[in-house]
């Protein structure tokens, strides 16, 4: 079906929503805690349950849901440090694609 939504802003909001949803699925957090995440909220390093296997699952699920490819070289401490950092990375990735 054709859509006439203004793509750029809608897409940014979509990515935010997908990221919150995937974090909820991976971390098992309540809707309240997920809604409360802001760009400074710490992820990798702040959340002990987010180990390498969980991060791998998180990134793989984000790839599938956003139809992007995340290269090993993209994955570093900065990209995973905060909610805002990961969101900015995903938005840039989608814009590239």
């Amino acid at each position: 079906m054709a859509t006439n939504l203004p793509a750029p802003t809608e897409q940014a909001e979509d990515i935010d929503l997908v990221l919150r949803q995937v974090l909820a699925d991976v971390l098992g957090l309540s809707a309240e805690r997920i809604a409360a995440l802001d760009s400074d909220s710490g992820l990798f390093g702040d959340l002990p349950e987010l180990d390498s296997m969980a991060v791998a699952g998180l990134l793989t699920e984000l790839e599938d849901r956003l139809d992007i490819i995340i290269d090993d070289e993209d994955v570093d401490g900065e990209m995973l440090e905060t909610f805002g950092g990961l969101l900015a990375f995903l938005q840039a990735k989608r814009a590239d694609g």
Binding site: Q21, V22, D25, V26, G28, D51, M53, G57, L58, E61
Partner: peptide, 11 residues
């Protein structure tokens, strides 16, 4: 809901 295999901890 979300698939439980995605969870960081068994759930």
């Amino acid at each position: 809901g979300g698939g439980l295999w995605l969870r960081a901890e068994p759930a």
